[in-house]
Design a protein around this nucleic acid. Sequence first.
DNA 1: TCCACGATCGGCT
DNA 2: GCCGATCGTGGAG
Length: 197
Amino acid sequence: MQQDSSLESALGRLTAVWAAPRLIGSIIRRQTPAGQIAVRIIETESYFEDDPASHSFAGPTPRTSVMFGPAGRAYVYFTYGMHHCFNVVVGRTARGEAVLVRAVEPINGTKLLQQNRPLPAGRRHQELSNGPAKLCQALGIDRQLNGHNLAHLPLKLELQPPLGSGQIAKRPRIGISQAKHELLRFYEKDNPWISAP
DNA sequence: TCCACGATCGGCT
DNA sequence: GCCGATCGTGGAG
């Protein structure tokens, strides 16, 4: 199989509910003019077909069209007038499923992350990338990357072997008003970069 | 056109 | 714990 389509086919086989825990531990590489950054995904949320909390719930719109495209693409949206959030499109084409990346831990290029997102004095280092909008700021992700194929730089997703289910915690999703009791938020247990339960 | 609201963050009480 | 910032989006009119 062509390397180009392996990410798309791997993620296309997974519904969002399976893909979200599957992506814990995977690597995101980001090429910027100043150098390359590598981070590891440690917290995700599922947004699935017929999910009232999902942007795709009302069907395709100009904003959400990427969610209804092939798996392995980036769905980046702008919210609260100032923040970006980054999702990985998963599942079969046209189902409108995606995984929101909520937190990452730095592997390489911490200096670049800090340049992109300077922390005021006294802030805990975790605050560099322990939220969906924070990691977008630190990685320099904005809507220019909406629809980008994550098989390639400048923003690349590299799947890693799945973590055992015992290493992954499940909790309700954050910041939504619909279906708020479903355990669709996943994070790596005992990771010091995870802030809230 | 108009307008209410949001998959957030950070500052302030 | 509460609240304001700030503006794209989409449903209503």
